[in-house]
Design a protein around this nucleic acid. Structure first.
Length: 341
DNA sequence: CGCCTTTGACCTGCGC
DNA sequence: GCGCAGGTCAAAGGCG
């Protein structure tokens, strides 16, 4: 059994190194090169060449529901206890990479660190995309630190850690949907404590906004889709069942399902990455995803309730902000600003 | 030579 | 208390 898995894994690895780097134009766009140079220009290039289809953060809880794989979620749930306890500090539910609320992550986990982590983990963002690549490139640099076979899913789950920042503890899990292997599910967790590429910021803004909306109760139901009207009003072409928020989970989960085909959208082929041909052939236009994200952001933030919630959230964050957080939050601050505006 | 991936082992939490 | 599953660590090997 393990041997089989190994084979699969190995194959996957080879694919990654060889060619499967589906760079998601939407996130890679401009910043790839820029951001990459921040740390290890060399490493970046290498990474970029590998299989990455970039997106942002995926939340597996949602994924679980959608895909039925129920892998990642399992482990995440246990954190709910801690999250609840710590939630006061991060009641906004902003994904870490968005707010930098979390002081920092380190290999050494003190009590405080753990607490911070919990906070960061509160909000997750899942992105489901249809792609042949082993990973989506979201503009950040990731280092693989583990891989595991998840129960109920023949595809291995890969664990990545952000290496763009020295102590950035943002992590992401990449796994293929058990029911539809062509669907790549990426779950992001934590906050970036460093500057993010423009595309990454856009994504972060969108997801954070959604998370905020969810937590603030702006959502009509604890478990549902973002109001299509809101999204569409902002011109979000893939609004139909594309973004899903879940408040029923231990922590807020945002799922961006980019695999679904909108019922009405002449832009579908261009703005949604769901079509196999788009991913498969990697023809997606660079600006499309960014535009989509921007539209989503605008849509989400256009909601008065959300805005109010966001203000409250930010206020709360500021009130409970930690000195250390501020320093590393340059980026986050920007993101927050974006959200507010 | 340095960085990254691979992978088995270990740790932790949850359900029974 | 035990077993299972997920997540992380760290040594070894590979690649550029």
């Amino acid at each position: 059994m393990q041997k089989e898995h190994k084979q699969e894994i190995n194959n996957g690895a080879k694919e990654e190194k060889g060619k499967n780097v589906i760079s998601m134009p939407f996130l890679e766009m401009n910043f790839d090169k820029e951001e990459t140079s921040q740390q290890s220009p060399k490493g970046k290039e290498i990474r970029e060449k590998r299989n990455m289809v970039d997106l942002m953060e995926c939340d597996n809880q949602k994924t679980k529901k959608i895909c039925g794989s129920g892998d990642i979620v399992h482990k995440l749930e246990p954190q709910k206890k801690m999250d609840n306890e710590i939630s006061p500090t991060n009641n906004n539910g902003f994904p870490g990479w968005l707010t930098n609320q979390v002081p920092r992550f380190n290999s050494f986990k003190s009590v405080d660190d753990k607490a911070s982590e919990s906070m960061i983990k509160k909000a997750r963002v899942s992105v489901r995309t249809r792609s042949e690549a082993t990973m989506i490139s979201d503009g950040c640099q990731w280092r693989k630190y583990g891989q595991k076979m998840a129960k109920g899913n023949p595809s291995p789950r890969a664990y990545y850690r952000c290496t763009m920042g020295l102590n950035c503890l943002v992590r992401k899990q990449v796994q293929r949907c058990a029911e539809d292997r062509s669907v790549l599910v990426t779950t992001y967790e934590g906050q970036h404590n460093h500057a993010l590429p423009p595309t990454a910021k856009a994504m972060a803004s969108t997801t954070s906004a959604a998370a905020s909306m969810l937590l603030s109760g702006s959502m009509p139901s604890a478990d549902g889709y973002i109001n299509p009207a809101i999204l569409e009003s902002a011109g979000f072409p893939c609004s139909h069942s594309m973004a899903t928020l879940s408040a029923s989970a231990p922590f807020p989960t945002i799922t961006l399902d980019l695999t679904k085909k909108p019922t009405t959208s002449p832009f579908y082929d261009h703005n949604c990455m769901s079509t196999p041909n788009i991913f498969g052939s990697q023809i997606m236009e660079p600006a499309t995803f960014a535009e989509t994200v921007s539209a989503a952001t605008a849509a989400v933030t256009s909601d008065p309730k959300f805005t109010a919630a966001l203000v409250a959230a930010i206020t709360s964050m500021i009130g409970s902000s930690h000195p250390n957080n501020n320093g590393a939050n340059g980026t986050n601050g920007d993101q927050q600003s974006n959200n507010t505006t």
